[in-house]
Simulated scan of single mutants.
Amino acid sequence: MNDLPTLPHSDAERGVDHAAGLAAAAPSLSAPAASAAPAPPGQVGLTVSQILQSPLKMTVIVLAILLAALAWSTQSKFQRLRLDMAKSLQKGEVANAETAATVRSVQELAKDLQAKVTLLENRQVEAQSQQLALEQLYQDLSKSRDDWALAEIEQVLSTASQQLQLAGNVQGALIALQNADRSLARSDKPQFITIRRAIAKDTDKLKALPSLDLIGVALRIDTVIAQVDTLPMLSDAKPALPAPAVKPKKFDKQGKEIAPAVAAAPTDTYFGRAQATWQAWTHEMWTEMRQLIRVRKVDHPEALMVSPEQAYFLRENLKLRLLNARLALMSRNEAAFRTDMAAAQDALTRYFDMRAAAPQSAQAMLRQAEANNVAIDMPSLADSLNAVRNYKSKP
């Protein structure tokens, strides 16, 4: 047990010490009297009675007794007070230890709570971000069917406008405009009248364009490309014979065809058979003679001196020219188209035998393809697109 603190001397303690001093002094005061006049043994009772009869002495004795009792009572109370104070201090120390343990547990609990609060805050932030994403998704999904239809129409018209400007796909643009107008017609809402009016205006512009059969022209060019390897050239060893001349038919006044005169059949005589044999032999000889010597008029003599290797490259160059013309046709480049077509026809006329039927047919197809007007100013679908975008931008 810890030492108890010493209490300062109070007034009561000082009074007790004073009373004890007086009690100790009282016998010393009466001692001289007794020593001064020693009483005989037979006079003791008289002395006590005398003492009792003296009021001052009686008062001092009573006061000394009272002071002694008071001192004893005060000492007892003080001892009990010290014991109580010691118990109180022990209880205080125990309470302080328990308080310290409680404080440590509270601090640990506070740390755990802080960690949990931080985790909850992080989860709350994640929940808020997820909530914002869900709200955005809900707003996207909550769009009306008209908004989705307008967005789809805008995308279709934008694609059709690009194809119209780049590839001249008029039919595709018309189909896109018709589908957009059909979608708006199903909605049957008066606010779409402005958009439908713009679509109708663009449709009329496309329908007013001159017709151009790109597919037909491309097919003619492809046909000539496929025939280039079989076309006879002027430098070939055996040029193709010219096409036989067809005699014109004769008609009478009534419009009936006049049959050609039939030569009379030879007689069965020996002279007739000999004459027929001679004519057949001379005709065969004359035909062979004609094959030996052939006179032709060639505008470009260098075409007759083309070697087989050069002929191969000439044919390939002609194919490349025609392929370039086809690409220029699809891209609506009229200058490149006409340049390549003119070069292809010039090569065909310069190096190929134009008396044969195949080169003549190829040249005719190229002339038909070149006669088409490739350069056509294509209108844009800006009116329809602007009408759709203006409607979407309205609050």
Rank of each mutant, 00 (worst) to 15 (best):
159 T>M: 02
377 D>M: 06
380 S>Y: 06
223 T>S: 15
14 R>D: 14
347 A>S: 13
316 E>F: 10
277 T>Q: 10
130 Q>M: 02
40 P>M: 02
334 E>C: 03
150 L>P: 02
358 A>K: 08
174 L>Y: 01
363 Q>T: 04
317 N>R: 14
270 Y>V: 14
108 E>G: 08
232 P>H: 00
153 I>L: 01
216 G>M: 12
391 Y>K: 03
104 R>T: 15
366 L>Y: 04
322 L>G: 15
352 F>N: 14
395 P>Y: 12
270 Y>C: 10
114 Q>N: 11
3 D>T: 07
14 R>P: 07
148 W>R: 10
70 L>C: 07
135 E>W: 02
76 S>I: 02
215 I>Y: 11
332 R>Y: 08
350 R>T: 14
60 V>D: 07
350 R>Q: 12
275 Q>K: 09
280 A>S: 00
169 N>L: 09
50 Q>R: 07
194 T>Q: 11
339 T>G: 15
143 K>Q: 15
146 D>M: 14
244 P>D: 13
203 T>Q: 04
384 S>G: 08
116 K>Y: 09
109 L>N: 02
116 K>N: 06
110 A>K: 06
64 A>E: 07
37 A>I: 14
128 Q>H: 01
376 I>W: 05
292 L>T: 14
217 V>K: 10
292 L>A: 14
358 A>S: 09
306 V>Y: 09
300 H>K: 07
193 I>M: 03
210 P>H: 04
25 A>V: 12
29 L>S: 11
247 K>V: 10
134 L>P: 01
118 T>S: 05
90 Q>N: 01
63 L>D: 06
135 E>R: 01
301 P>G: 10
331 S>R: 03
212 L>V: 00
314 L>R: 15
239 P>R: 02
362 A>E: 08
85 M>A: 07
305 M>Q: 05
196 R>F: 07
170 V>K: 04
348 L>G: 02
84 D>Y: 11
17 D>K: 00
18 H>S: 11
48 V>L: 11
83 L>F: 05
181 D>F: 09
163 Q>H: 10
331 S>Y: 00
200 A>F: 12
314 L>I: 05
349 T>K: 06
375 A>E: 13
25 A>D: 13
8 P>M: 00
282 T>F: 01
289 M>F: 14
279 Q>C: 00
212 L>A: 04
18 H>E: 10
326 R>G: 11
233 M>C: 05
351 Y>P: 07
